[in-house]
């Protein structure tokens, strides 16, 4: 029962699953999804992927959003900050 009550670990699982989805779908070099609010409702996302090459800022964010669309309909209320870079922009 201690695990069920441990909201922190559920949020960590959610963050990790979002990281994995972004990483796989965008073939990303690095992905970090950070829980900013402690309950998974506000997150901060940083992605480095060569898939962003030649894409506008809007399209880059769209690509990330597409990978975690489901999570954004449920738990996650807002993405406080998102950076989308290509390896050469890092």
């Amino acid at each position: 029962s201690s695990q069920i009550n441990d909201a922190g670990s559920i949020d960590q699982t959610l963050m990790q699953s979002m990281e994995l989805k972004i990483k796989e779908q965008l073939n990303a070099e690095s992905v970090t999804v950070t829980d900013m609010s402690g309950d998974g409702r506000h997150v901060c996302i940083n992605v480095v992927s060569s898939a962003f090459e030649g894409q506008s800022a809007v399209n880059r964010q769209r690509m990330v959003y597409k990978a975690i669309w489901e999570e954004l309909q449920n738990v996650v209320h807002a993405v406080d900050q998102m950076t989308t870079k290509t390896p050469s922009e890092v």
Partner: peptide, 11 residues
């Protein structure tokens, strides 16, 4: 809900 899909933007 419709606008999220229309814009391909969930927020």
């Amino acid at each position: 809900q419709g606008l999220k899909e229309y814009s391909n933007w969930p927020t």
